[in-house]
Design a protein around this nucleic acid. Structure first.
Length: 258
DNA sequence: ATGACGGTGTGGCACCGA
């Protein structure tokens, strides 16, 4: 059974690409970020026709997340209890999957703009809120997967220019410490459980032929709980949609569980 | 080089993303 995450940067523009990707990659669960549309504009019917239920937490213009699944979602939670947020950045569901009952948490983490900015402060607070809330979630749901656009590179392998970008946004020690704090809760970076190609990235800037030159970042992640870790059989990045016409700047990451 | 490229909004550009 497979779970995927994909920041699609506007579902309005990318719906045809999502549908064709699902047709070629019939995953059990697809977590989307940056819908950039309100709930009433969500293409429920089109995704239903493709065989997916949808749990949606939309927002006009910015943000917005959804979880598509073969089986209907239960216990849907939008944003984190105990952390008030104006922005639609997180949705959690419980799913009955071939691998048993799994809690799937899908986040569009804060970008943060630049260290020292107000948005960076918001990013740090959001990450602290996530960790506090996740502790409870993990207690209630041992089979848990946290996926999404983390907007954090984990280490130097995740960036095309580790020296030049040191301590810039997505590369700061502070952000990486927050990532490590999530691992401390008992989560594992599924991608690094396996040997991977050198210079594997999940995002490339639209500018300066960044994809062609493979100047990218790995900022989209899949974290699995300790109970699920033994069931993980693979984790891959699918670069192919970045070659589409009008692509998202991010590509899907897919984890397979027994 | 505070730009490039692309999405959104009610625009004649600004804001945001990463």
């Amino acid at each position: 059974m497979k779970i995927a995450t994909w920041n699609i940067n506007s579902l309005t523009v990318r719906l045809p690409q999502v549908l064709s990707w699902l047709a070629a990659n019939p995953v059990d669960v697809l977590c989307l970020q940056e819908l950039k549309l309100s709930d009433d504009k969500f293409p429920l019917k089109e995704l239903q026709d493709a065989g997916y239920h949808s749990a949606v937490f939309g927002q006009k213009t910015y943000n917005g997340v959804a979880i598509l699944s073969r089986t209907p979602a239960r216990n849907i939670v939008k944003n984190m209890a105990g952390f008030t947020d104006e922005q639609s950045r997180l949705i959690a569901v419980t799913l009955d999957t071939p691998a048993g009952e799994v809690r799937v948490i899908n986040g569009y983490f804060v970008n943060g703009q630049a260290p020292g900015s107000e948005k960076f402060e918001y990013k740090m607070k959001w990450l602290t809120g996530l960790r506090d809330w996740l502790r409870t979630e993990l207690h209630q749901h041992p089979n848990l997967v946290l996926v999404g656009d983390f907007n954090i590179t984990v280490d130097d392998r995740d960036t095309y220019d580790p020296e030049g970008l040191r301590e810039t946004i997505h590369h700061t020690t502070e952000e990486r410490q927050h990532f490590l704090a999530l691992l401390d809760l008992g989560l594992t970076d599924a991608f690094r459980m396996f040997e991977q190609p050198e210079k594997s990235y999940s995002w490339w800037d639209y500018r300066e032929f960044a994809f062609r030159r493979n100047r990218g970042l790995r900022i989209d992640h899949i974290l699995v709980s300790q109970a699920l870790k033994p069931k993980v059989t693979s984790c891959v990045i699918d670069k192919s949609p970045r070659k589409n016409e009008r692509p998202s700047d991010h590509v899907p990451v897919v984890v397979e569980l027994l």
